[in-house]
Amino acid sequence: MTEKIYVKERDIVVPGDLLAEGMSYIPGNRAFREKEKIFSSTVGLVSLRGRVIKVIPLAGRYMPKKGDVVIGKITGIGSSGWMVDIFAPYNADLNIGEATAGYIDLNKTELGSIFDVDEYVLGEVIAITERKFIKLTTKHRPYRKLQGGNIIRVSPTKIPRIIGKEGSMISMLKNASGCEIVVGQNGLVWMKGEPEKQAMITKVIRKIEEESHKQGLTDTVKKMLEKGG
């Protein structure tokens, strides 16, 4: 039996590309095994972690994972919770018990007074079933209602670049603008601060989205921020 790897770290692959051969390799996210061979299932960049081969997607909609921090929009209020649009193919449920740290007495409280329809919340995906029923929580800090400010939508595949290595890019933006910025894994970015600064950040984020593949992105952004957009 052959044991062979056909790709290198950060190689670009398309659906059906052969990644490796042999049972000692393990297909990770967006890779699959057929007999002894491992193939890619999406366009993406190869990532090797020991014997696990996965593909980091370069395209596609946001697919929720457990533990993701997301920004969602309240789309409905039920008898025991809220329905939240998290800009994925599926809606998420936010149960009363997961909404606030305190106890909510349904006889005394109107759910709309906590989160109303069309309001935005910052939450975490706490559970996701096989059939993709999604549960959110907004119980603990920093999860909350996002009041005021401005929201923009970017491709979820660019979110890691906006955050930067260990949050370097996002903290640079925060320091330069003095705005509050929150980034959701689902591609939504919320900001609050002076209107001019918000406009500047929007411009910078669009630039990051556009040039996410280029080298020296941090320097480009730094220069942009110094110029004030």
């Binding site: 398309v14 659906p15 059906g16 967006r30 699959f32 193939f39 299932s41 999406t42 366009v43 997607p57 370069l58 395209a59 596609g60 909609r61 595949t157």
Partner: peptide, 11 residues
Amino acid sequence: LADAGIEMKGL
């Protein structure tokens, strides 16, 4: 379909 990031067996 590939451009949409949809998972496929092959082209």
